[in-house]
């Protein structure tokens, strides 16, 4: 059992370890065959070169600003709609909700050419707004939060209604705090998928200082680079923030991801 666990950890970790080790090597060391495991000296030259060649500070800022906006706006939009679908009666509700669910099944590529045109028309290409704007209207988020609102006892609404709360007040002051765990999970899932996305950032922003980490890495390899110590240094710079966040909030990450599997 332990052997299997050690083997599993090795297979998982080896690519990360090799990335880090390579990032400290000189070019000559990296192309030596058979390779030495450890670098001769732990020099940071590759990191310095990559940081000079590429605006990593902008990559970080663009990525996290995009993630922050996607999460914040999506939570507001989807929790309001989720509450309305779970708790309020209005004509056409079933139809509108089914339509929302149907969108869950449509692959994203079919929207990308039109999304790009919308961004061109709004003069938003090469902006952070372009990165998050199409991502905030989430059918999945609405569906998930609706399930959670439905799980809360209806007597809460009735009590609040007697106390003179309106529908918006019930949503904002009574029910929203109670679905906080679901909001955190959705926030993590949304942040993670926004962080990982490559195709849309590549399409909509081609100015280097408006790129995300994902698209920035594509540039790193696109420059006909075969200097792998630099490529690995760039990769290491791109992966650590999310790994750090994960190590800090592992419980929430795991709960969030596990939640997607609940039917």
């Amino acid at each position: 059992m332990h052997l299997a666990l050690v083997l599993l950890s090795f297979i998982t970790l080896a690519p990360f370890v090799w990335m880090l080790l390579t990032s400290f090597k000189t070019f000559e060391e990296s192309v030596q065959m058979p390779p030495d495991i450890l670098p001769q000296a732990w020099n940071l030259i590759n990191y310095r070169i990559v940081l000079n060649k590429f605006p990593f500070a902008m990559f970080y800022w663009n990525t996290f600003a995009m993630m922050g906006m996607t999460v914040a706006v999506q939570l507001v939009v989807c929790s309001m709609a989720g509450y309305a679908f779970a708790r309020l009666q209005f004509p056409g509700k079933e139809f509108l909700f089914t339509l929302c669910l149907a969108l869950l099944m449509v692959p994203g590529q079919i929207f990308l050419v039109p999304h790009y045109d919308i961004m061109v028309r709004l003069k938003l290409t090469n902006s952070i707004t372009a990165l998050w704007l199409p991502k905030i209207f989430s059918a999945f988020g609405t569906f998930m939060l609706r399930q959670f609102f439905q799980g809360l006892p209806k007597s809460l609404d009735e009590a609040a209604m007697i106390d003179g709360s309106g529908f918006f007040g019930i949503y904002a002051r009574i029910l929203l705090p109670l679905v906080k765990p679901a909001l955190i999970s959705l926030a993590i899932l949304t942040a993670l998928s926004a962080f990982k996305d490559l195709m849309w950032p590549l399409i909509v922003n081609n100015a280097m200082d408006k790129m995300t980490l994902s698209a920035g890495l594509a540039m790193l390899i696109g420059e006909h680079t075969t200097i792998y110590p630099q490529v690995m240094a760039g990769s290491a710079l791109a992966v650590w923030p999310m790994i750090l966040l994960f190590l800090m909030f592992q419980k929430h990450f795991v709960e969030g991801i596990a939640l997607t599997g609940i039917k």
């Binding site: 599993l8 970790l13 990360f16 990335m19 390579t22 962080f195 490559l198 792998y228 990769s235 994960f246």
Partner: peptide, 25 residues
Amino acid sequence: LSFLPAVTLPAAIALMWKWLLNYEF
């Protein structure tokens, strides 16, 4: 440890493996 790839940028995963799978080195 085994959850790490789930929070790693696919772009970085691709580059890590591109290097591991490099023909010459």
